[in-house]
Design a protein around this nucleic acid. Structure first.
Length: 419
RNA sequence: GUGGAUGUAGCUCAGUCGGUUAGAGCACCAGGUUGUGGCCCUGGGGGUCGGGGGUUCGAGUCCCCUCAUUCACCCCA
């Protein structure tokens, strides 16, 4: 078949068994978040463009990579490129600052960014994320780190290492920023092309350049500029997380892409994904709610890309399979098979049956590719109120009562019958 | 946005120097066995060789453009 109707660039069709792994991970993430007291939140796939524009003035994600459109009513809308701004908007709009604090929210949602696709980078990807509002104390940062790592640990990655840093607050960051700019100005003209641009547009990004590392070595240390409160906050985060046995270390060069981060930022990577590709990351955003017309409420959160996480997990998280059954029939017995199949399903047992009026041989071939147990309906057994149960893996088969309750019981306890 | 690689069946790939009707394996369907899957045998369906243009008597093959995939950079999940 030839068609021009292909999926848009950078998107993907997810088929079994991959789609089953995703669903399994989604449930695991959902469970874990609930375990920490977080409630699910769903926000629209698109927002007024202003929501993202306000929040990410200088970031590539909202500056160059937005899927934006004007609807028939003239409203400027943008497909959600990231979760935090949307959730913060919902926090304000729904008056959650009047709810008992802290407010703990999590989401599982598609994100849209018009980037050039490459390994594990898509124009539509899925993020599991959580946001915690209303706590300025370092324990909130620590709880977010615990939740995010708990998810990957439960999924099968044993010892994630959190790399963390503090970007300081509105009191101490400006001083550092100008010291950094002043230092790098001395190397103007000797830097890589990207760094020349960073120097003007986003100086903090100079810190994670992979080329000009020698220049970076002599750059001023961010931690020397932290105000006492920021210092105490960061040390407390390290202490609280470390106390639980999680691995956390300071990465003095870690900065992150969104403007709204204050103080804590963190990332977790994975060796199998290459050095630059973060599994997930997050941080604190104490000014964000206010920026979105809300009261002065602090917040902290993370976002985790499910595609990257599933890739890092590899076979550690496999598609769950539960034994299933298939009702095959002899010519003329499709009606009876139909009823047997449904009687099993209403008893909670997975079951399918042939819809194509195929030969028994074809049905068995089909069944052997799909399920572990096949029931054969028809002929002499059926006349005696019986049917055949066959285990397609072992080849063993028995004739049993065709009463639906009996059949269900046999399937549940088939091990005991030596099938 | 920048740079590289690759596009032939559902999948993985052959296809010689430009030459007849484009092949294989796997997968799918049917039959061999009108009551038994997997192994085996036989047969079948499925391709405008990514698309467009050009060179040529003749293009899957050579040239140009384009689209897509993929990898890296930027950035990010």
């Amino acid at each position: 078949m030839r068609t021009e109707l292909k999926r848009p660039r950078g998107t993907q069709d997810l088929l079994a068994p991959e789609s089953l792994r995703v669903e399994r991970f989604r449930r695991l993430a959902f469970d874990t978040a609930r375990h920490y007291g977080f409630d699910p939140i769903e926000t629209p796939a698109f927002e007024q463009s202003a929501v993202f524009l306000k929040v990410g003035e200088s970031t590539d994600v909202v500056q160059h990579e937005r899927y934006a459109f004007t609807d028939a009513g003239g409203v400027e809308l943008t497909l959600r490129p990231e979760g935090t701004a949307a959730v913060a908007r919902a926090y304000v709009e729904n008056g959650l600052y009047n709810a008992p604090q802290p407010v703990r929210l999590f989401y599982w949602a598609p994100m849209f960014r018009r980037e050039r696709p490459q390994a594990l980078r898509y124009r539509q990807h899925t993020q599991f994320g959580a946001e915690l509002f209303g706590v300025e104390d370092a324990s909130a940062d620590a709880e977010i780190m615990l939740l995010s790592t708990a998810v990957v640990i439960r999924a099968g990655l044993s010892h994630p290492v959190i790399r963390a840093n503090s970007l300081g607050c509105s009191l101490c960051r400006p001083a550092y920023r100008s010291a950094l700019v002043q230092y790098y100005e001395g190397f103007r003209g000797q830097l890589c092309q990207d760094c020349e641009r960073r120097l003007d547009q986003n100086p903090l990004r100079l810190l994670d350049c992979k080329v000009d590392q020698a220049v970076r070595e002599g750059s001023p240390d961010l931690s020397l500029f932290w105000c006492p409160e920021c210092r105490r906050h960061f040390e407390r985060v390290i202490e609280l997380v470390g106390a639980t046995g999680r691995l956390i270390e300071r990465d003095p060069h870690l900065v992150r892409g969104f403007d709204y981060y204050t103080r804590t930022v963190f990332e977790v990577g994975h060796p199998e994904l290459g050095n630059g590709t973060a599994l997930f990351g997050g941080g604190r955003y104490d000014g964000l709610v206010e920026l979105l017309d809300g009261p002065k409420v602090p917040g902290v959160g993370f976002g985790m890309g499910s595609e990257r996480l599933l890739a890092a997990l590899g076979t550690r998280l496999s598609a769950s399979s539960q034994p299933s059954s298939y009702v095959a029939y002899l010519p003329g017995f499709q009606g009876q098979a139909w009823i047997v199949a449904e009687s099993l399903r209403v008893r909670g047992l997975p079951c399918q049956t042939d819809l194509l009026q195929r030969s028994l041989k074809a049905q068995l071939r089909d069944a052997s590719r799909r399920v572990q147990y096949v029931l054969i309906v028809g002929g002499e057994e059926w006349a005696e109120g019986k049917l055949t149960v066959k285990n397609l893996e072992s080849g063993a088969q028995h004739v049993v009562s065709a009463d639906p309750d009996d059949v269900a019981q046999v399937l549940v306890h088939e091990g005991a019958l030596g099938l």
